[in-house]
């Protein structure tokens, strides 16, 4: 009976607004083999259960508490490739707010990099957070080969990755230096990197406080960045850091100035986009 219920749930979840253009669904079997203890978090029925918990519990709560004002989510709508979502980090509330800001389709396929030495130190906490937010352990140093390997496996199997390249929460809300892992990851997988800036969460739950308080939050999503041919991963990391910082400053300048035609070209889906620099061959798709 219980099994039936879960199955129905899964059917309903997948069948909802049936037929909406949906990219290839990552099969449960393709989920990370690296850390077998966490594979369950990305497989059924945990996915359905998490979806329930999200929709019924913390998404409404997060929206109520923060009323997130989201700008630029159109950059995510057309993406059918796995992306690296990169954001500044000021509060434990960030992950909830960011996930709430993502379009449904993206959120469902997003795994969150959580500091391995903080969240996964205790097994029960690790399990809880893996279930709750679909996290996976990510080393703060950003260089460990094993972690990079598992992340790129995730990206290749179609999961979006949300990571905080600052490595830790900012004490004062200012952007800290990005760890180089983002560049490596982008270099290895050729996945586009989406810069995101979140503002206001330090008022919701600053470092050190345990009880969230309501406060307005703004999330700005920028244009996806691609590793240019020949670009070093470190300089790419700097570029990403700059992009996140710029999103945090003042009002968002139009991404594309000039006529609609430029904007039209800029938003072309990957397979059709003419490469501006005359560079050749898009990165190998998933």
């Amino acid at each position: 009976m219980r099994f039936e219920l879960l199955r129905d749930l899964e059917l309903v979840r997948r069948g909802w607004r049936w037929g909406q253009v949906r990219p290839e669904w990552p099969e449960p079997a393709a989920a990370i083999p690296e850390l077998p203890s966490l594979e369950w978090a990305r497989a059924e029925p945990v996915r359905s259960l998490r979806w329930l918990v999200q929709q019924g519990l913390w998404l409404p709560f997060t929206r109520l508490m923060t009323r997130p004002e989201v700008e630029g989510d159109e950059w995510l709508r057309d993406q059918d490739r796995a992306m690296i979502l990169v954001s500044n980090h000021v509060s434990h509330a960030d992950t909830h707010v960011l996930l709430a800001a993502l379009p449904d389709r993206v959120r469902e396929r997003t795994v969150v990099g959580a500091a391995a030495d903080y969240w996964y130190r205790r097994p029960w906490l690790g399990r809880l957070v893996s279930f709750w937010l679909n996290t996976f352990p990510f080393a703060r140093s950003g260089g460990a080969q094993g972690v990079l390997h598992s992340s790129s496996r995730l990206l290749r199997s179609g999961w979006h990755l949300l990571i905080y390249p600052e490595g830790t929460r900012s004490p004062d809300g200012r952007l800290q230096e990005f760890k180089p892992g983002v560049g490596h990851l982008a270099g290895e997988t050729r996945a586009p990197v989406v810069p995101i800036h979140v503002q206001g969460t330090h008022r919701v739950m600053p470092k050190g406080r345990r009880i969230p308080l309501p406060a307005p939050v703004r999330v700005r999503i920028g244009r996806p960045l691609h590793l240019e041919p020949g670009e070093a991963s470190r300089s790419f990391t700097r570029r990403v850091e700059r992009a996140v910082g710029e999103l945090g400053g003042g009002s968002r300048a139009p991404e594309v100035v000039g006529s609609w035609i430029e904007r039209w070209r800029a938003t072309a889906p990957a397979r059709r986009r003419p490469r501006p620099g005359g560079g050749r061959g898009p990165a190998g798709g998933a």
């Binding site: 159109e74 904007r263 039209w264 938003t267 072309a268 889906p269």
Partner: peptide, 12 residues
């Protein structure tokens, strides 16, 4: 669709 929408909405 998203692409047409973001290109033209709302002034055109």
């Amino acid at each position: 669709g998203d692409r047409v929408f973001t290109t033209f909405y709302p002034d055109r």
